[in-house]
Design a binder for these strands. Structure first.
Lengths: 255, 255
DNA sequence: AAGTGGTCTAGACCACTGA
DNA sequence: CAGTGGTCTAGACCACTTG
């Protein structure tokens, strides 16, 4: 974006500094992979307090321009490499979009693990799920899980189903498995897509903790309802995936 | 997420404070829409420096838990209301997913406006576009635009096409229009979807400026290639939409 | 041990909003 | 005008990584 929009009369120092650093990254003065000058160095070079430097660098980190490694330094991020998960726009039977199933085999060292089966109170998320399923929160059960790949948590998932209680063995924290089919079996139904939606949110404190990212990190949200073949809503699922590690692709032309 | 994952031995004060504030929001101690205690008040109540309070509140803002209004106060966000943009998974002719076309008429007060037609150098984004189109950056032209609705910028779009130069009238900054059809006309071709992908990123400095949001805000990215009916890639488009204002929905069942 | 980033404090001044 | 959040400084101490 080459424009210089009319700036407010006084742009804060830390933002101007962030821009100058970004310019150096764009210009190749700080090439991808290299270390930026340390905070005291930048502080001295630009004649500002170290906290001001930190504010500038923090913005660049949130914008995925640099990566901060504690005790080591701040490094220019190379272009993002993200797993592309293919979603067949015409299919509605199989969870082709699942993060778990779509990754190269050598990366599928781990899997999906139950984190908790929190009681469905009436929290904002529970209320949302109830609305999507056309039920009241009291009728729902919930399971949360984490999908790990290559030793790292990649996605956090929450599932709501309109029955319960769920078998204790199924929702035991730490239990491995693939929850969508497991839940379908528990319900004794066949599932197909009703709808799926894509959105983006900043990670809340809980998701950030589970994913090992700073709160506020951009997450890709994929949510939706699956139903039985006769159209009865049977599952609401909400997955949060670190935006820097995956994307969903829809191919529209036949191969 | 009701679990309390095993915390590192010492969680920073600001994070613990953020959690306590979030608990109050969840518990309804601070209901949606109400104002939190001011920073000096929180500072006094918890016996920490105001800057530490600010760090905690800033995290909650990035997580979309609260909204900070300068000179006024910090308010608990009500559940997000996001525009749902329907994408017909089976259609590939019309840009049904366009933010511009999918909104209720009363909100379509503005439209899409050209921001700039930056030269295609070899920046990371230009290189990405060239790769997607199977060309070299030198063969491409680029246009950036902003989509405004209700007086607010909602989306930033960048388009790359494998020809040029583009008509000056088309890329004049400030020019209104709907760029996909305009570009198709300029190219003298018919366009259909090849593929589209969804991702999430933190806003960079330029996008943040254009959208009027803080850098790092979670943006939903929708990108893809459109091609001519015979399959030749003719357009690479990358849209960034404020995650708090829109989402894309795919319906899989016939209505 | 030296150097890096992470946290926290105290205090100052400013810009914005609303009554 | 008083109260709110926004910016900036100086200085201190800590936790982590690497040699």
């Amino acid at each position: 974006m080459a424009t210089n929009p009319p700036n407010p009369p006084s742009t804060p120092v830390y933002r101007r500094l962030a821009r100058r650093l970004q310019e150096r990254v764009d210009a190749g003065t700080y090439p991808a992979g290299t270390r930026l000058p340390s905070e005291p160095e930048l502080s001295a070079e630009f004649g500002v307090n170290r906290l001001t430097v930190r504010q500038a660098v923090a913005e660049l980190e949130r914008a995925a321009v640099v990566e901060i490694r504690r005790g080591v330094g701040t490094f220019v991020r190379p272009p993002a490499v993200r797993v592309s998960i293919a979603v067949d726009p015409r299919s509605q039977r199989i969870d082709l979009g699942s993060v778990y199933g779509a990754l190269p085999n050598e990366e599928r060292t781990d899997g999906e693990f139950v984190v908790a089966a929190p009681p469905v109170t009436g929290s904002a998320q529970d209320a949302e799920a109830a609305r999507r399923l056309g039920r009241t929160p009291a009728e729902l059960s919930r399971v949360d899980s984490v999908i790990r790949l290559g030793g790292r948590a990649r996605a956090v998932c929450s599932y709501w189903v309109p029955f319960g209680p769920l078998p204790a063995a199924l929702v035991r924290p730490g239990r491995p498995g693939n929850l969508v089919p497991d839940l379908a079996r528990a319900a004794g139904v066949e599932l197909e897509y009703d709808w799926r939606a894509f959105g983006a949110v900043g990670a809340d404190l809980a998701d950030a903790e589970l994913l090992g990212v700073p709160p506020g990190t951009a997450l890709l949200v994929r949510e939706g309802v699956s139903c039985t073949p006769d159209g009865a809503p049977a599952l609401y699922v909400r997955r949060r995936i670190d935006g820097s590690s995956a994307r969903f692709v829809l191919h529209f032309r036949d191969r």
